[in-house]
């Protein structure tokens, strides 16, 4: 029964050495170990978190880039379209202007031609009239060159008048 009888000496030494052990370890070993462990764990957690954050930022950045690219592409398309429209408009305007100019020139020409034509016609008429008078004079002169003919004419004229 010696086994289950605690001996004073052993309790004494056990208490002293165990308390000294706790004291020394609690002062010089465990705080350093536990603190280092905690610090390392924290730093690992932080590193993981920041990596995760960086990954997210990267993804966001990439999405932004994508968006920017799409926007740029759209802008380029619009610009191209605008340029094409402008070109078309300019060409159309030039065409219209040219047409209008041409029409105007045509109209002016036609008018000039008309005027010239009318002038020519008038002149022709005048000349024809003058010539007719001349001809008529010459004819008259020939017709009235002797007395008989004058008399015949007179008769004729008189006949007309009496008829009236």
């Amino acid at each position: 029964m010696e086994l289950i009888k605690p001996q004073f000496g052993l309790i004494f030494w056990m208490a002293i050495s165990f308390l000294v052990l706790i004291f020394l370890l609690a002062k010089f070993a465990f705080p350093i170990i536990l603190k280092s462990l905690k610090e390392r764990e924290d730093s690992i957690t932080n590193a993981l978190n920041s990596a995760e954050k960086a990954k997210k930022e990267m993804a966001a950045l990439q999405a932004d880039n994508e968006k920017l690219l799409v926007q740029a592409r759209a802008e380029r398309d619009t610009m191209l379209k605008e340029a094409r429209d402008t070109k078309d408009a300019i060409v159309a305007e030039a065409k219209n202007k040219a047409q209008a100019e041409a029409n105007k020139i045509l109209a002016t020409t036609r008018e000039t031609i008309n005027t010239e034509k009318n002038a020519a016609i008038t002149e022709l008429k005048n000349q024809v009239a003058a010539m007719s008078i001349e001809i008529a004079e010459k004819i008259l002169r020939q017709e009235l060159s002797n007395d008989e003919k004058q008399k015949a004419l007179m008769d004729n004229l008189m006949k007309d008048i009496s008829l009236n």
């Binding site: 000496g9 052993l10 056990m14 050495s17 020394l24």
Partner: peptide, 20 residues
């Protein structure tokens, strides 16, 4: 009071030294 360095006390001290 018997506070001898017995076999167990010696082993105990050795283990304390090892742990330290």
């Amino acid at each position: 009071y018997d506070v001898s360095i017995t076999k167990n006390v010696l082993a105990l001290l050795v283990s304390v030294v090892i742990m330290l």
